[in-house]
């Protein structure tokens, strides 16, 4: 593990994000999520669609305001009350310089009416005073870092392929020299042969710049490959959290096990020979969830105790924790 010291760069505690659907219905997208991210490491956040992983990421970079809980970045409470608008703006600038996000869909996350130069340069102009020349030089340098050429600066997003667009998105995130980047499914919209290019680049950038990543994805093989630690989410809650190698060797939560066994492994002998744990049914609705283990309805091992309340995240030693009554 790449922890350099023991104070986390990012500490999320009891984070919840509820969306009110009607007078009686509340959609609990994220419900009491806590974890820490240390400097220089990559933490993977996995789960199926609707489990709240993207909402968690968006709450961290302040694209959503959480309903409860706290997010501390480098010791500072990101959502601490402020006295004036000027103070709020100053904090917003400071945090934007430190925390950036790479979005899932490179087609919809770049403004089609802005040139690459404007897209990548926008952050630079906001982050500090900089002369035109210097700014242009920085943009060219950023583009080179992500494998694009100087001749690309005056083009528009539609002139690029998906992989190239994702590189532009990464260059935009890097432009303000952040310390922490939330990568929200950065490769799932890309073709297989392009995915590896982007992953390798993210890993290289991390090594060169000492970046810290929160890597959100639904592809477990990719998450295992890039992450030092992995957090598994299900229906708004963390079900398991561990160092990545340990998690893949000894998954403790029945959901994690089912998730692993469902991966279509690209090897016929493994894929055809493996006994799959097939989960019954679909992911239940996160609207007005019951006060019990969220996975109980689909769990092959569920017992009466699972309906008695929400299982707490228990430490099983060695940084491995699991939220299951039976583990």
């Amino acid at each position: 593990m790449k922890r350099t010291n023991d104070t986390p760069l990012l500490a999320v505690e009891g984070l919840s994000k509820y969306f009110r659907m009607s007078r009686t219905d509340v959609l609990k997208a994220v419900d009491g999520v806590s974890f820490e991210v240390f400097k220089g490491e990559t933490v993977g956040l996995v789960g199926e669609s609707g489990c709240g992983k993207s909402t968690t990421g968006r709450c961290i970079v302040r694209l959503h305001e959480p309903s409860a809980g706290s997010v501390r970045f480098d010791g500072e409470d990101v959502y601490a009350p402020v006295r004036s608008r000027a103070e709020a703006r100053a904090r917003s600038r400071r945090l934007c310089k430190d925390m950036q996000m790479v979005f899932q869909n490179p087609y919809s996350s770049l403004n089609p009416r802005m040139t690459v130069k404007d897209i990548v340069g926008e952050g630079l102009s906001l982050a500090g005073r900089m002369g035109e020349r210097e700014r242009d030089e920085r943009i060219t340098e950023l583009l080179r870092t992500v494998g694009l050429g100087a001749d690309h600066v005056s083009r528009f997003p539609h002139e690029f392929s998906g992989g190239q667009r994702q590189r532009i998105g990464i260059a935009r995130a890097l432009s303000v020299d952040p310390r922490f980047i939330v990568c929200d499914e950065p490769i799932s919209a890309l073709d297989v042969s392009i995915q590896a290019q982007v992953i390798n680049m993210l890993k290289r950038l991390q090594a060169e710049r000492g970046l810290t990543y929160l890597f959100i994805a639904h592809d477990l093989s990719v998450v295992k490959y890039v992450s030092d630690r992995v957090i598994v989410m299900y229906l708004g809650t963390v079900v398991e959290q561990s160092e990545s190698v340990e998690l893949y060797r000894h998954p403790l939560h029945p959901y994690t096990r089912a998730l692993f066994s469902a991966i279509p492994e690209a090897d016929p002998r493994i894929a055809k020979g493996r006994e799959r744990i097939l989960l019954k049914g679909e992911i239940p609705s996160p609207i007005n969830p019951k006060d019990e283990c969220r996975f109980a309805d689909r769990c092959p091992m569920a017992q009466a105790v699972c309906r008695s309340g929400r299982p707490p995240l228990r430490d099983m030693g060695g940084g491995h924790s699991v939220a299951c009554f039976l583990a």
């Binding site: 297989v192 392009i194 995915q195 590896a196 992953i199 592809d219 477990l220 093989s221 295992k224 492994e265």
Partner: peptide, 17 residues
Amino acid sequence: GSIARLETECADELKAI
């Protein structure tokens, strides 16, 4: 070669095309 598998170690680089 370019897909990450469960067996791929974190240290190996994916062979991108």
